[in-house]
Write a protein that binds this DNA or RNA. Structure first.
Lengths: 334, 334
DNA sequence: ATGAAAGCGCTAACAC
DNA sequence: GTGTTAGCGCTTTCAT
């Protein structure tokens, strides 16, 4: 039954709207028999509260926007799943917003044509600069996730990318590899994510007294497996020698695996490979991928907690938090 | 600036709310100079219309729910991306609803605790029966996608699964394969999707005078690559012989590829493999996958069109529509 | 414990 | 072309 209103229930039950509202929202001070009578009327009429009416009256929508480049990228899809599950625990539903990793997309998101649609935004920027983010929408609670340069005024949750990159590079060094490449960073302009990962990679090399070789940096035209098939393939064909590859993400690693396969290079015996994100595929590639596994559950939960505090009125400075990661060792490293 | 209302703009511009409303909504009959004056007030105050107020007044929310099992499954993620893009064209935003492929999840979706949150639902059921779907929420516009058994009262868009399964099986037969298995259907109970694909597979075999062999049906514990690694691996280890595998989806195909690799079986020379969905990974596996590619753009667009018609009041019988697919031939078949 | 009435911010008839 | 006046369905003081 559509169009059943609070007033209709009140009429049938012979009480006021207020009382029905109290019953619907489980307000404690309602006598048992009134509650029962009202409940019967609700069931009889098939009443369901109207979301918009409630939201207009309370000013809260129970909706939050989850914004990032593109759900079809497996890492984002898996992130969306975790955020959506955690959000449900917090009583929120998730509106999907894709920015296509373009400046226009990200600006449109931050500008937000309508007010009051969502209570807050969880956003992983791809290209926007810290200063530009800081200028926008101070009225809308916002939590950033990922490795973007975050303004001091905004909350942000991430893993320690530099440390994780150091860890996987170190794993390769301890296995005796010396010519270790890095695969999959963007060109022409590095994202902050890639910058941090390359930094950790370089730190690990230098700590082991290995001189980083710029010829072992294989950039990709886009964040995709295809881009890294081309990059790694071209390098091999050009005669570049390496015995390990630290990949920016699992997509790049999967592409690298394919390029190596095509040319009959054995993984991990001749070339070891590591990925990043621990997307579900990384367990079933051949060989399966050693990869950095961010604690997505912790990431999502912390982001939600910070966001809810902002929605509830917290107005302090930006909190920048780190959540854990692990390195999952599989077949692609010795 | 939060909390700027239509009335505030009207006061500053020295006009009525109605006029401001007309300007905001680009109502044509407003004099140029009035429009300009109002616009200046809007800019000055940083006014943005409040979504909830507008929605309450119009009864439309501009939101639609996209519901399916799990966004972390690549096919659904890619579907979400296309639906979200097409929805934007139609002036809608997308609320993500995951059912986890459970009956409770699907029932919760159909029951919908609140009215008025979304204008309609696009839903790919996993387990719910046609009759049960038909009983629910006649007030909320609903379009089903995928191969579920759809009630006659509800709109549905899908590709012709039987024909597509026939096509890929036929491709294998024409390449000279005779012992062709099917991989990845659920156990214990087959989904409608799997049922239709197995049907097409069987039809193609029979048309070629090959007797379908029940020993070549390799079911999987769940929709995942891991399930099919186990199923195909166990079959090989048990000595089952086959020279081709039609897989229920790309995930199953990727799992099959891994199981074959592990045991040193050459693809496609010894065993050919086909997938289904054409997820982006299928182009970069090794070997890359021959797969059924549903026209997602057409699927999403048609679903949106049907939904919008329902939202606009169409109340006729359910329309069941078919959209095209292609078979993308890659390296995993001869 | 329950009721009456005043909004929440906007749109839509209907006047002028 | 522009203003006035009711609502949309709900929550929320403030009474009782």
């Amino acid at each position: 039954m559509a169009g059943v209103r609070l007033q209709d229930v009140a009429d049938v039950a012979g009480v006021s709207m207020k009382t029905v509202s109290n019953v619907v929202r489980n307000y404690p001070h309602v006598s048992a028999k009134t509650r029962e009578r009202v409940q019967r009327a609700i069931d009889e009429l098939g009443y369901r509260p109207n979301a918009m009416g409630r939201r207009l009256a309370t000013g809260k929508t129970g909706l939050l926007a989850l914004a990032f480049a593109n759900v079809a990228i497996p890492y984002f899809a898996e992130l969306a799943r975790v955020v959506s599950r955690v959000a449900e625990e917090f009583g929120y539903r998730v509106l999907l917003e894709e920015t296509d990793a373009t400046l226009e997309g990200e600006r449109a998101l931050m500008a937000g044509s309508e007010a009051g649609l969502v209570d807050g935004v969880i956003f992983q920027p791809s290209v926007m600069r810290s200063t530009e983010i800081a200028r926008h929408r101070t009225d809308l609670p916002l939590v950033l996730i990922g490795e973007t340069a975050a303004p001091l005024t905004v909350d942000r949750v991430m893993i320690d990318n530099v440390a994780a990159a150091r860890d996987v590079t170190d794993l390769l060094i301890r296995a005796g590899r010396r010519r270790i490449g890095f695969v999959g960073h963007e060109r022409p302009r590095l994202s902050e994510t890639s910058r941090q990962r390359i930094l950790g990679y370089q730190e690990a090399l230098e700590a082991a007294r290995i001189t980083p070789d710029p010829a072992l940096l294989f950039s990709s035209a886009e964040i995709s497996a295809g881009g890294s098939v081309d990059a790694v393939g071209a390098a091999i064909d050009a005669g570049v020698r390496f015995d390990a590859l630290v990949c920016r993400d699992d997509l790049a690693a999967i592409g690298a695996l394919r390029a190596l396969h095509e040319r009959g290079v054995a993984v991990p015996d001749e070339v070891a490979v590591t990925g990043w994100d621990d997307i579900s595929f990384s367990a079933v590639t051949f060989p399966s991928l050693t990869t950095v596994a961010p604690d997505l559950e912790a990431l999502a939960r912390r982001a939600l907690e910070l966001l809810v505090e902002r929605v509830d009125g917290y107005g302090g400075a930006g909190r920048h938090e780190i959540v854990p990661y692990t390195v999952v060792v599989r077949e692609s490293t010795p």
